[in-house]
Write a protein that binds this DNA or RNA. Sequence first.
DNA 1: TTCAGGATGTACT
DNA 2: GTACATCCTGAAC
Length: 184
Amino acid sequence: MLGPDFFDRDTLAVARAVLGKLLVREIDGLRVWGRLVEVEAYLGPDDLAAHSAGGRRTPRTEVMYGPPGHAYVYLTYGMHHCLNFVTRSAGTPQAVLVRAIEPGPGVGRASGPGLVCRALDIDRRLNGVALKPPHLYLVDDHAPRRRVYVTRRIGVESSGEWAGKPLRFCWDSPFLSRKLRKAP
DNA sequence: TTCAGGATGTACT
DNA sequence: GTACATCCTGAAC
């Protein structure tokens, strides 16, 4: 299992390193999982696309200011939950957003942050929980590594120069939320 | 107290 | 490609 130390470092390094790891969710003792294939880094307080942009600190963003290795779960568009892993030491509000997983047995399609949460029954009850059993945690099953593709983030068009920064990390997979545009 | 808008997904043309 | 469901959050008032 990946412990707090894994998340207590540069957010870009964490974003790359979580690719291919298993995201495990336990619901009443039932264990389901998926393999992480698409994530984005949010580098507050400098990052204008982050909820913690400009050092914004509110009840919602509070978890990101806390210690690493915790879940930050929020609701967007009034209906979709999104899951993040809090990175960096307490006081530095950065996180990695989970955008897609390759679903394990019995898990529905999970291509897109809202679908990941729907497929694994993740909602704001899990906001702030530590990434360890018995609710939600990451496991390294030493899957064969794949090449990492880096692109701009999705859905942050209105964030000035931060909109175009290469902060989305993917493994090539049929389960990405958007197809990769590979160079010819 | 009010109100604009959002780290989205689905259906439909 | 565009429409829209649906409601919390944050900031202004």
